[in-house]
């Protein structure tokens, strides 16, 4: 890692990721989907940020924008995205290829899709290492073994010779993490990597990611819809709804003292043993259709505190304490 150290050093205090005013629209002949509508985001070096939101909140789209993985032709992008001091949206294709993998890498919900079924896992990781770092195949294989040990795959040497379908769910998720880490990225993007896993495996992967982040001093952006998972993994949480970040703060602040009515609603509607026999305080209605977003706050139609202002204008962020802020006109209503 010494060859990268000298480049990083002068920018050490700068945030690794800076997103401002990001807007993403998907165009099709029928309709325009407003997937992301003004997202501002910073990620410090060595921090784990979770983007929490439900389907259609724009969380995955935001994540993919950081690596410019969206279909270029149908997508309209606005705003600034910089990762490690570089403007991602303006990057030429060649630089983008180097950027993907070396600066930022991504893991997905379906690890099987990351691997080619006709080659062994070891070959594929070695090949990625060779291509990006220009080392020999033998060195690539050695590095693959190192990576397998890093992600705690038991009997790593034997596993390298396996084909993707021979690995169980948790094991292939580990292998995908190894693949993502193969070029020592500074930023790891995780798109619901534990959602498809069984409960006992999910917690293993969460713990592994936490350990790896510390060991390798990476920054991680983790996308999930599960509050429990967010609590386990993150330093900071950003809650998304209708393509905007509605509240963000340290994990303790969001879980213990949520202030945005949506976050509050999510917390209160959780089913648990203590609430047995009682009605759940469900959030009424359904998530907004991103093709026909309301003009004001996207949550207003479902919000118990909404007033006329909420339907007319999009609320700006109000600082609550330190880094904890929420975008809501009615924050005084949600004071604890």
């Amino acid at each position: 890692m010494n060859q990268t150290a000298e480049i990083v050093a002068p920018q050490q205090d700068q945030p690794l990721v800076q997103v401002s005013g990001l807007e993403v629209r998907f165009k099709s002949p029928d309709r325009t989907v407003h997937a992301v509508n003004g997202v501002d985001l910073t990620l410090k070096r060595g921090e784990i940020l979770t983007i929490l939101g439900e389907s259609g909140s724009g969380k995955s789209v935001t994540l993919r924008t950081l690596m410019r993985l969206l279909p270029e032709r149908r997508t309209q992008l606005k705003g600034q995205v910089s990762v490690d001091g570089r403007d991602v949206l303006a990057m030429p294709q060649r630089e983008l290829r180097r950027f993907r993998g070396r600066t930022a890498a991504m893991i997905f919900q379906e690890p099987m899709l990351a691997f080619d079924p006709v080659f062994t896992i070891g070959q594929q990781i070695a090949e990625t290492v060779c291509r990006h770092e220009g080392v020999s195949h033998k060195e690539g294989l050695a590095r693959a073994l190192e990576l397998f040990e890093l992600v705690r795959i038991p009997s790593a040497r034997r596993r390298l010779a396996n084909y993707p379908h021979e690995l169980s769910g948790g094991m292939s998720q580990r292998a995908m993490i190894a693949l993502a880490l193969s070029c020592r990225p500074r930023l790891l993007l995780a798109d619901e990597p534990t959602t498809a896993l069984d409960a006992t495996v999910q917690i293993q992967i969460l713990l592994l990611l936490r350990e790896l982040q510390r060991e390798l001093d990476m920054s991680v952006i983790f996308v999930t819809h599960d509050m429990g998972v967010a609590n386990e993994i993150s330093d900071r949480i950003a809650v998304m709804y209708g393509g905007r970040i509605v509240e963000t703060g340290k994990v303790g602040e969001i879980i213990a003292q949520p202030r945005h009515p949506y976050t509050l609603g999510l917390m209160n509607s959780r089913a648990s043993g203590e609430l047995k026999g009682q009605r759940l305080e469900a959030i009424p209605g359904s998530p907004p259709d991103l093709a026909t977003l309301p003009s004001g706050c996207a949550f207003a139609p479902r919000c118990p505190y909404a007033i006329d202002t909420c339907h007319d204008s999009v609320p700006i962020a109000h600082t609550i304490e330190g880094q904890h802020w929420a975008a809501c006109h009615r924050l005084e209503q949600t004071q604890p």
Binding site: A282, P284, G285, T292, P301
Partner: peptide, 13 residues
């Protein structure tokens, strides 16, 4: 059905 009343669909569709 208090929790279910405002499941109004996008009426415009």
């Amino acid at each position: 059905l208090d929790s279910q009343v405002p499941v109004a669909a996008p009426v415009s569709a």
